[in-house]
Structures are given as C-alpha cells and as structure tokens.
Simulated scan of single mutants.
Amino acid sequence: MKFAVLPLLWMLALPAVAALAPQWQQELQQLTEQAARAALPPHAELQVQLGAPDPRLRLAPCEQVQAFVPAGQSLWGRSRIGLRCVAGAVRWSISVPVQVRVFAPAWAATQALPAGVTLEAAHLERRRVELSAEASPALAQAEAPLGRVLARPLEAGEGLRQSHLRQRLWFAAGAPVQLRLAGSGFAVKAEGQAMAPGLDGQPVRVRLDNGRTVLGQAVGPNEVELAW
C-alpha cells in the first residue's frame, strides 16, 4: 500500500514533542482509517484514537514529513503508526501509539456459560461485538455455531470467539479420507489415508494409493481439502 507524502512544513525546531500538531493528527487519523478499513468485514464500524509521541523526543527541523504504516504492522487493537522526515538536514523517524477498535454484528452469549456446554439456540444472540478486543477471531458468520462445545467459559453478553470453541476432530490417524481439489471450472477428487489426526482447519498429511504424500487441510468428517 502506498501513501502520499504529507506536505507539512516544520520551520522551527521543537525542544520536545508533547503532542501532535493538529494537521498531523488529521493526516494520521485519515491514514490509520484508510489502512484499517482495507481489512474490515461488511457492516463494521471503526473507531481510531491517536496517542501522543514520547514527550522526551527532540526533533530537528524538517521541510517535508511523511506518515507511514510500519512494515508488518496490523492496525487493529493497540498498534503504532509512523512519521519520518524525508527532507531535512537531519533525517528522523518516530512512531505514535494508536488504538483501532472495530465493531460488527457477531454471536454473543445470552447468559453466562461454563466450559463444556454444547451450544444451543437459546445460548446465543446477534449483537454488536468489538472484533478487535482479542486476537482470536469473533464468530460473525450468518449461521450460529450450534452443536459446538465450549473450551472455555463465556460471560453473559461476551462475544463468541474461535478460541472459545473446542477444536473438532474430523478423523483419526490412519482413517480413510476423501481428498478434493477445486478451482475455476474444475474439481478433482481422490482417496487416501490420513497420516495424523484431522483437527478442524489444521494441516494434515495424507498418503495416496501410489505411496505419495500430500498436504491438505481437514475440513469435515473424513474430508481433506488440498490447496490450489
């Protein structure tokens, strides 16, 4: 992703940086929202709160300042965004704390639920959930994950996340499995033998009848999907 250079002129050296200039705040806010929205699900809402740089920083005068997203930085939850001098006697680069909160409809508990409970319709409701509150993805699909077993407890009103659910075992090591490979306008199926237990969504090796092994993903009862 490319970001335009911000035409900001800073003619006087600041002995310390206690807060961002108003124009910097606006540009950083827009840049953060632009980068965060690229990964937003449908019907999601975004809230961005910029922090202040370290007040002990001393920066040299700069004729042109550029805002940027640090490489590999995810702008969900607590993160950082950068400013750097690209035209000045002394080049410098700083980072500014930012908190990005993402809200969207997802499944949440209607009541406190202990670990080990098998989810039923009465246990769940659709409501506004902060997706960015935890690293584990919130469950926002249209159909409720009924029949799944909780691996850890849920508080009333708490959003249901992938880490709350006990991982499903689709097949045991040594079990016969169906392999499928689908692409644009074609589908291929084959049979093989699982070389390890098939945990939901996890990679598993399968031995084919000719002795070759392939790596796929366990996706259902005795079903393995191959990557295309």
Rank of each mutant, 00 (worst) to 15 (best):
residue 5 V to F: 09
residue 5 V to P: 10
residue 5 V to M: 07
residue 5 V to I: 15
residue 6 L to S: 05
residue 6 L to F: 13
residue 6 L to P: 00
residue 9 L to A: 10
residue 9 L to N: 04
residue 10 W to I: 01
residue 11 M to C: 02
residue 11 M to P: 00
residue 11 M to V: 08
residue 11 M to H: 05
residue 13 A to C: 05
residue 13 A to V: 02
residue 13 A to Y: 01
residue 14 L to Q: 11
residue 14 L to A: 13
residue 15 P to K: 10
residue 15 P to G: 13
residue 16 A to P: 00
residue 16 A to H: 15
residue 16 A to C: 12
residue 16 A to G: 10
residue 16 A to S: 15
residue 17 V to K: 00
residue 18 A to G: 12
residue 19 A to M: 07
residue 20 L to Q: 02
residue 21 A to I: 12
residue 21 A to D: 15
residue 23 Q to D: 15
residue 23 Q to H: 13
residue 23 Q to M: 14
residue 24 W to H: 15
residue 24 W to I: 10
residue 25 Q to L: 04
residue 25 Q to V: 08
residue 26 Q to S: 12
residue 27 E to T: 13
residue 27 E to D: 14
residue 28 L to V: 10
residue 28 L to H: 07
residue 29 Q to Y: 11
residue 30 Q to C: 11
residue 31 L to Y: 03
residue 31 L to M: 14
residue 31 L to G: 04
residue 32 T to N: 05
residue 33 E to N: 06
residue 34 Q to S: 08
residue 34 Q to L: 11
residue 35 A to C: 09
residue 35 A to G: 04
residue 36 A to H: 05
residue 36 A to V: 10
residue 37 R to C: 13
residue 38 A to L: 14
residue 38 A to Q: 15
residue 39 A to H: 12
residue 39 A to W: 11
residue 40 L to M: 14
residue 41 P to E: 04
residue 41 P to G: 03
residue 42 P to W: 09
residue 42 P to Q: 06
residue 42 P to D: 09
residue 42 P to R: 03
residue 43 H to N: 09
residue 43 H to G: 00
residue 44 A to Y: 04
residue 45 E to I: 01
residue 46 L to H: 01
residue 47 Q to L: 11
residue 48 V to Y: 08
residue 48 V to E: 09
residue 49 Q to N: 04
residue 50 L to F: 05
residue 50 L to C: 04
residue 52 A to S: 15
residue 52 A to H: 09
residue 52 A to K: 14
residue 53 P to K: 12
residue 53 P to V: 12
residue 54 D to Y: 01
residue 55 P to K: 06
residue 56 R to C: 02
residue 57 L to G: 02
residue 57 L to C: 06
residue 57 L to R: 06
residue 58 R to E: 05
residue 58 R to V: 07
residue 58 R to H: 07
residue 58 R to Y: 06
residue 59 L to Y: 00
residue 59 L to W: 00
residue 60 A to M: 10
residue 60 A to W: 09
residue 62 C to R: 00
residue 63 E to W: 11
residue 64 Q to S: 12
residue 65 V to G: 05
residue 67 A to S: 14
residue 67 A to H: 13
residue 69 V to S: 09
residue 69 V to I: 15
residue 70 P to D: 08
residue 71 A to F: 12
residue 71 A to N: 10
residue 72 G to M: 14
residue 72 G to H: 13
residue 74 S to Q: 14
residue 74 S to H: 11
residue 75 L to M: 01
residue 76 W to G: 08
residue 77 G to R: 06
residue 77 G to F: 10
residue 77 G to Y: 10
residue 78 R to E: 12
residue 78 R to V: 02
residue 78 R to L: 02
residue 78 R to G: 02
residue 78 R to P: 01
residue 78 R to W: 03
residue 78 R to S: 06
residue 79 S to K: 01
residue 79 S to D: 03
residue 79 S to W: 02
residue 79 S to F: 02
residue 81 I to V: 15
residue 81 I to D: 01
residue 82 G to Y: 10
residue 82 G to R: 06
residue 83 L to Q: 08
residue 83 L to E: 06
residue 84 R to T: 07
residue 84 R to Q: 15
residue 84 R to G: 06
residue 86 V to M: 07
residue 86 V to D: 08
residue 86 V to F: 07
residue 86 V to A: 09
residue 87 A to C: 04
residue 87 A to Y: 08
residue 89 A to D: 05
residue 89 A to Y: 01
residue 89 A to H: 04
residue 89 A to K: 04
residue 90 V to A: 05
residue 91 R to H: 12
